[in-house]
């Protein structure tokens, strides 16, 4: 049973180059409906780029992307992105809008909800992340952890089928990481389909259903958290784990 109308996500043989820099070299990733896949790997291995290709902020050079088993490459990319929520390391809240307007903007402009209805839904969404009382504040007046939770609420407001997190806690002060991770954990347990790029090995190990280790634009290992963390097969993953753990 899921609180979300989540769907499965599949990337098949994704290739992408920036000029001569081949950043993604044949990536396969399958995230079944309602599961959480974490993606780990050293900086520069192409994790952020993979997320951006999967919601077509960047168009892949080759490969296919499937949402709920259907290829989305022929769809309008703007409409595809409405079905995939994304949370960034730097939050990227809109500083000129109040917290509640950050959340209601897409409801009002994209879903064409009347303003008061969009606001009511946004307040509900903020309540879910524990920040309803900050609705009329400016994002700049919130702590990093609060901003990131607002960013999550903003993404959830569109009722996405999949959520992407790109190092959502990396820019946070250590004492604020927990609040965001626990919210992500709740989403995962609630049945959201999630792809989580993270350096938080605890989250990756304890919360995610699968772990994918990327290095140099390829998937080096993928499997259950136990398989990767307790019995890494490749030297590259062993080396990475000994560096980060």
């Amino acid at each position: 049973m899921s609180e979300f109308k989540s769907g499965s996500l599949t990337a098949k043989n994704i290739h992408l180059a920036f000029g001569s820099n081949k950043v993604l070299r044949g990536i396969d990733l399958h995230v079944p409906q309602g599961t959480t896949a974490s993606v780990i790997g050293p900086s520069g291995s192409g994790k952020s780029t993979l997320l951006r290709v999967m919601n077509r902020l960047i168009e892949p050079d080759q490969g296919d992307i499937l949402l709920d088993g259907r290829s989305v490459l022929a769809d309008n990319p703007d409409e595809l992105r409405r079905r995939i929520g994304m949370v960034f390391q730097q939050f990227n809240l809109f500083p000129h809008k109040s917290v509640v307007d950050n959340v209601s903007l897409s409801l009002n402009k994209l879903r064409k909800m009347p303003k008061d209805q969009a606001r009511a839904k946004a307040l509900e969404q903020l309540d879910m992340v524990g920040l309803k009382q900050k609705a009329d504040a400016r994002p700049g007046n919130l702590s990093g952890g609060q901003q990131q939770r607002v960013a999550i609420a903003r993404a959830l407001a569109m009722e996405p089928e999949v959520m992407f997190f790109d190092e959502a806690t990396s820019a946070l002060d250590p004492e604020l990481v927990k609040g965001v991770l626990s919210l992500m954990t709740d989403l995962s347990k609630g049945g959201m389909t999630m792809v989580v790029v993270t350096h938080e090995m605890g989250f990756s190990r304890n919360v995610s259903d699968t772990v994918t280790f990327m290095d140099g634009g390829v998937v080096v290992e993928t499997g259950s958290p136990d398989e990767l963390f307790s019995a890494p097969k490749t030297d590259r993953l062993k080396g990475f784990l000994s560096d980060v753990l």
Binding site: V129, G145, G179, T185, D186, G202
Partner: peptide, 16 residues
């Protein structure tokens, strides 16, 4: 900048 006053309240599922 305010302290993250409600950070502990949300997310009963923190495992990390």
């Amino acid at each position: 900048i305010e302290p993250d006053d409600v950070a502990g309240v949300v997310g009963k599922g923190a495992q990390t």
